[in-house]
Design a protein around this nucleic acid. Sequence first.
DNA 1: GACGATTTGGACAAGGGTGTCTAAATTTGT
DNA 2: ACAAATTTAGACACCCTTGTCCAAATCGTC
Lengths: 229, 229
Amino acid sequence: MRASVSPDTFPPRGHEAKRLSIVDAAASVFCREGYSGANIDLIAAEAGVSRQTVYNHHGDKEKLFMAVVRDLTERCNIGIFATIATFPDQPGDLEADLIGFAVRLNQNCICNRDGKFLRKLIQTEGERYPELFAEWREQGPGRTWPAIAARFARLAYSGYLAIDDPDVAARQFLGLVNAELQTTFMLGGSPCEDEVVQSAKNGVRTFLRAFGRHPAPGGIKKHTALANA
Amino acid sequence: MRASVSPDTFPPRGHEAKRLSIVDAAASVFCREGYSGANIDLIAAEAGVSRQTVYNHHGDKEKLFMAVVRDLTERCNIGIFATIATFPDQPGDLEADLIGFAVRLNQNCICNRDGKFLRKLIQTEGERYPELFAEWREQGPGRTWPAIAARFARLAYSGYLAIDDPDVAARQFLGLVNAELQTTFMLGGSPCEDEVVQSAKNGVRTFLRAFGRHPAPGGIKKHTALANA
DNA sequence: GACGATTTGGACAAGGGTGTCTAAATTTGT
DNA sequence: ACAAATTTAGACACCCTTGTCCAAATCGTC
């Protein structure tokens, strides 16, 4: 009973499904083979469509590539913001909560299929499409970093952390919890869950050694920060 | 008076010079265009030789690529070990010395021409040549990380730092001092000196907040660590 | 200056990729 | 079931790239 047409697109359903499967296959092939090495026939085969259909939908190898990057950026942003929403603003166990946040960010945004592909595409073809990747920089890091920094600022304002500059702290947090995954990232691989958890644990411990408030053994005394608003 | 022949190579001099200029040009083109997009004619032109000379020296596009990666790995390793030798084992001002070390490592090894090229090649083609990049992993990170960790261990043993695991600390140190350069690295760019210095300063400050020994205002009391040996 | 080795530039075959076109088959909405 | 739109498979022209071959020019050494 899903017969109702979508709001503004004439070709209703199977059309969009094919478009998606083409973009997915293209992402995979562009990452594996590089832009020049990617072969439209192979993309079509991997998407389960004919070559002509690829051209019907995207017109051009370059336009297809653009569509891939835009799709991946958008999908990754959605995942990142969903994960940022789980940031521990009123933590029970700050250390455990920060570790959980770091692990979720890695597993759901950085190491998943979309994140891996987007990262590789940026590394590989970033220099060849300055405008496209300037757009990515604005839409991606330009929006997500401040959002994460704002959460750390709130945590500091509530008395859980001693932070000078929330932007610096946010970048250092990510640098720390990913410190042990760099080599794997370099080679385009995905670290296993154990590695992600271990790196997050070590990173958060160091982060809290630097910025933690060392509460009294009994527990953290809540500040009355919201009384000002 | 440099007329004496080299020990075991028959073609004496101009030969090797051409070999080098080919590898250099190839590194540049492979990075800019990717393996598939790299064009032997372009490499030859950029190296100032004819295409046939490229084939005479390296036989094959793939062999040429291998030679490029091996050359870059070797050159980068030399630079990294030279820089590790400047690690502050008996620091005067620990913070300033660590900042200087981080800046040197970035400027001379990671952000210079060879480092940038090697990084990009690994990111771009790492998955396609598993054995070659396994070799890189052993010869590169496999040798340099322990060397850096050993220096931190020594610093800890001498009482300058409070470190649990030197390997973790070494990775976190690099993660911290590069925390603000990640986006630039992603896009294959080289950060300017100011950015490198700023990131190093912020990173080292956090590192010392986590691991520093907070010496008395007058100065650090030296341990008698060597008496045990 | 002469000799051998290297380099050069140009031509060449073989292969592969992009993008277009067409007519037939299939899917979709009514 | 019908009509319109979409998809398909195949053929095609065009261009680019790799790697080889060869004769002429150049280089380095004696």
